[in-house]
Design a protein around this nucleic acid. Structure first.
Lengths: 249, 249
DNA sequence: GTTTCGGCATGACATTTGTCACGGCCGCGG
DNA sequence: CCGCGGCCGTGACAAATGTCATGCCGAAAC
């Protein structure tokens, strides 16, 4: 059922969200009468200061262009690696940080945790390509205020930023449901390590060498991971763990 | 790793660096598109009409925002599926089409071939996440005029569009070199089929069932694909073929 | 304190996978 | 025409993989 549910889930998520806006708590946002910026939480006050982190320069620049079109938003810093974000945030003091999950250096979720600790006033909005259930769970645990996938209509990004800045949470409801449906990560830390090492396709001997383990131990962990993921081969276990977002750091 | 090469590459390409191997077709068509809209360099003429196709709505919207900032560019159509592009292009007659490679429906390279046939005046610029050597090769064979990865600085996208519209070719030189270094796709059509079927991690029996083949045949094709990719296991062969862009359609 | 659980390891075993040699069928180019 | 290469299949064999039972250790939970 898992494969079936995955496929249907993603398509459904797209179709569903095309009609209904992102909202986790309460009010349906219908106050979309373009012009006036005062409507969304922000007073007539200074614009919301943003930091944008994404490793793909083109996407990052495009996101900045999109956000800077809004009169009440202003991008004050951009990062292309996860490990740059903290320093930049300390320097520029953004109100909201938009973080991609997949970045070199540090993944966005780890960065979110850093930011929450160093700059409690800075809210975090995760913007990611993949709606892996495990990502959402870990992002929320790390203190993120919002989580949107890059499938969501561009119009809603600015609104998501405003809601996050206003202290609300922003989560794609379809994704939240899927995240609840799929249980917690069943893998132990070591099992995840082995699966991560198995990702690039090496043999048991290769994995054992990489991790300084006995080959028998590697086989045991693989077997146990295959069992826990309900897979029938190592490759399938890797795929399932990937799709659920269980292989982060 | 290729980040700085990318940046330098685009600039270099602009200067007309040493031989650009991919423009060897020698079509000196500098007068062709000039016929309709006078000089390419002139900014006083009508804006360049663009079509943008990318399955991720947020990225698509952001790219449109970025491009519409340029006074001489105007986005007239957007598509989120490959199989929507042709109809939209016939309706809106863009001068340049920006196509992502990974899209539902049809991949961007196939769409490029469609467009070249149906609308010879419409240039194609491929904009993709992955700089797979095989993608570049096939894109050029399909008649694309340019190929940029999403790592390139945002500033250079508009310039790439203008160059493509002027009848020039735009290719990241580093990527072109890599593309030449890695030889042509060594896999036969059937071997690619088998590797594609092996991607999601099924057993030999699963693959055989999916493709209506004998298990022995599947093992033979796998073995041959493993040999040709210089891999040491099925999983590694899949990874290598993926990274080289040998598993499209 | 005892139980439980995760990490690590060994050894034995059945199954799967990868390789090789062989055969047949087709279409294409020398 | 005839060879070559791609496609499909069989059979046999060695190596890798997946499973299971069993053991030891330390830490956390009861």
């Amino acid at each position: 059922m898992s494969a079936d549910a995955d496929g249907a889930g993603m398509s459904g998520s797209r179709d569903g969200t095309s009609a209904d806006p992102l909202s986790a708590d309460g009010d349906g946002m219908s106050s979309d009468s373009g012009g006036t910026s005062a409507a969304a939480g922000g007073r007539d006050s200074a614009p919301i200061r943003l930091l944008v982190a994404d490793d793909q320069a083109l996407v990052r620049g495009a996101l900045i262009a999109l956000l800077d079109l809004e009169p009440d938003l202003h991008v004050v810093a951009e990062a292309e690696r996860g490990d740059e974000v903290l320093a930049l945030a300390l320097e520029h003091r953004p109100d909201v940080a938009l973080l991609d999950v997949e970045m070199p250096g540090l993944d966005g979720i780890t960065v979110a945790a850093q930011l929450r600790q160093a700059l409690p006033g800075c809210r975090v909005l995760i913007v990611t390509t993949f709606g892996r259930p495990g990502y959402l769970k870990r992002a929320m645990a790390a203190g993120a205020s919002g989580f949107v996938v890059k499938d969501t209509p561009a119009r809603q990004l600015a609104e998501a930023v405003r809601r996050v800045h206003a202290g609300l949470r922003v989560v794609d409801p379809a994704l939240a449901a899927e995240s609840l449906a799929s249980g917690d990560n069943p893998l132990s830390a070591r099992e995840s390590d082995i699966l991560r090492a198995a990702q690039r396709g090496g043999s048991v001997a290769d994995i054992a060498r990489d991790l300084f383990l006995s080959e028998g131990t590697v086989r045991n962990y693989l077997s146990s991971a295959i069992g826990k993921t309900a897979a029938r081969s190592r490759a399938e276990a890797v795929r399932i763990a990937e799709e659920n977002g269980w292989l982060l750091s």
